[in-house]
Design a binder for these strands. Structure first.
Lengths: 220, 220, 220, 220
DNA sequence: GCGTAAACGAGACGGTACGTCGCGTCTTAGG
DNA sequence: CCTAAGACGCGACGTACCGTCTCGTTTACGC
């Protein structure tokens, strides 16, 4: 039941008037482990410090809030830059989403990110951090779409921001409801986001008319 | 600092071997008030009981967890059945979303729902409750879309489930990032979800071809 | 861990506007059982009512305090009147003490009496009850001693009250420190109380002088 | 109704990884005060902590049970070492008892000790603590008696343990029944315990024979 | 090269909230 | 009017963490 680990017999100590990277590492590792094992419920500063064999003030010195610690745990996982180029917008978006889902599924990042979002619901400061982080991620996807437009895959007046928002909303929803294992329907999803509900993704080029008929301009 | 209210001088007591609705009401009111004033951070069973002038065991008797209480606070707000009929699918969805945003914005339901989602990230039981609740809500929107298909507004093979998921994901994202005040772009969003990124919502019926061009079947 | 008993399936009910002896019996039995099994620690009105299959108000109606219930539990055990006559004072006292120890050891009376004394330390009303009860018991022993004096076993000016107080004090001490199993030394104790510390209870009739020497009158 | 005191404005804090004697003192003081004012009934860990301006965990850290706290409250009062030497055993015992009665009467020790005994009736661990404490106190009186024997005031075969037990039993009885104000009869009591019931404590040196006659050896 | 400053582990501090238990009171519904 | 049942407001229980503090130790840096 305890998340403690007997703690390495070797005792860390100060290395002078600056942050000891060993301690930082030990703390982040402990945090990631606890998150993976017990989820946000077991994730307390106290537990992290205990497991890391660190003093509580050491944790507080470098991460003033639980969220700050969570964010660093999350950030440490993603050196995997989401760099993709499949030569098609649809392929790019699909690849990005698949990587993201795998990232959330296979690393402590998933629980960490869920926790960050949760935290942001009660702590405005955490929300601000999250918003900043989110903007940066959105920017990245935005670039993909712009590139797609440049290639002519979407009309130039397409609303990139909405595409991004739909995709992120969808991913969040899946994460927050514990459904990151469902990824079989991602291709259809991407297609839908780009081309609408009515546009079948089979070999139905001829159905364009249907799609057209099904998408009257709002002024109609 | 305290969220207490001197408590009505009138002391409630048992009305026999069954739940006292006065207590239930007082507790739910207190919960809603605290949520509105202090957010999830100040929302503890203890604080609710104190403010309601109730004993802690009375709260625990009827709401075994904080989430259960939150859910009832949320549910109590929404006698406003989301019954709409604008004679068009796009109008229906737009109306539903607008009502939802207003509901979240103008009642304690917004903070409550944010809290429920947050809670669900650390407590599997809360997640289950939330999932159940969510399924029911999705069903409601699903029916609107089915009706739209019957009216011929969407082709029969349109993927209703994805439409629903996109819409909910979008709404959640806005709520969770504190953007429920942004509702000017809801019409465009609805249009986008139904007809894709490329389909402008102006008087561009002629652009059908563009939309078509922009939406190659995936097998292409 | 629970002291509950599934409760007789048969449900007792009112027998009109008076005390139902079945209920009283069930409650006293339950009380005695709990006391025997879990001691005073587990002895709560709530537990007694639960085990007796009775409502709490029924218990409160007839026994306003925990002590009142304890006293009745104790009293119910001791129809065994402490009537003795061994033709010698020493024998009488010894017999009385042995019976008392056995009574405390072999019935729920021991735990009950310990509990009553404990209760009396924080509740003046309980102390009053206890004092009254104690006076009556002392009177009984007092009579034995008076009889001994009449038989010439003690000089007429012997201080009966002190003898009684010493004996009761000794018994209480043994009870309260959990030593009612020690009764091998009771004969010596009785002898000591009557004839002093120096008077050996072996074949030392000749030692009378020693005893005398060892017991100078206080004025000396 | 509340026993709280506004708490000194000065807030105590940690003085490093060891017990803060200021806190300990404040807690013991508060405990003694509550005991003196409200008796055992009002004596809860919560109330003590509140009055001491201490956190509950701080109390629990150092005194795992209510009894442990009571015992320290009691022990702290008795720096008054019961060191006596009146050159006579009878005088020594009398002096010790008088001091004890005064101690119980004039300090919080009386209520404290009553509470400790009460507690011991329901908690075996408390009983063990009490037993240990009691053994030490008995040893002290035992030494007095041994000294008396060495002086020839009691025959060498006198049963010291019984004397001690009688004296302590008597004192307890007086304490537990709220009679520590009665101390006029202590001289007679001591005399009785040492020399038996029949031995008058007046100028009856001649009555030695009577005492002798009244104290047949049990084998007779 | 030596004093000082800062980080280290440890853990106690005053607190808040947890979820449970028992208190004694009250109201029922049913003999 | 008594009975079993059980909800009520209340308050204490003992535990977990919170975020702050002071400790004594262990470096590394700057005077």
């Amino acid at each position: 039941m305890s998340t403690d680990t007997p703690a390495p017999v070797k005792r860390r100590t100060s290395i002078g008037g600056r942050r000891n990277p060993q301690s930082a590492t030990a703390i982040l590792d402990a945090a990631a482990d606890i998150l993976a094992e017990s989820g946000l419920a077991g994730f307390s500063i106290e537990a992290v410090a205990r497991r890391a064999g660190a003093g509580k003030p050491t944790v507080y010195r470098w991460w003033p809030t639980r969220t700050a610690l969570l964010i660093e745990v999350y950030a440490r996982q993603k050196e995997t830059v989401l760099q993709v180029d499949t030569a098609s917008l649809e392929g790019d978006l699909l690849a990005v989403m698949r990587r993201l889902f795998a990232f959330w599924r296979d690393t402590p990042a998933g629980p960490a990110f869920r926790s960050i979002i949760a935290e942001a619901q009660s702590d405005p400061q955490s929300l601000a951090l999250l918003t900043t982080f989110l903007a940066e991620r959105k920017q990245h996807v935005h670039a993909l779409i712009t590139r797609g437009i440049a290639r002519g895959e979407l009309p130039s007046q397409a609303d990139c921001a909405t595409v991004v928002e739909l995709i992120f909303g969808f991913c969040w929803m899946r994460l927050l409801t514990g459904q990151i294992d469902r990824d079989a329907d991602l291709p259809a999803l991407v297609h839908h986001v780009l081309y609408g509900a009515g546009h079948s993704e089979g070999s139905e080029q001829k159905d364009g008319a249907t799609a057209l008929a099904a998408a009257p301009s709002r002024s109609a």
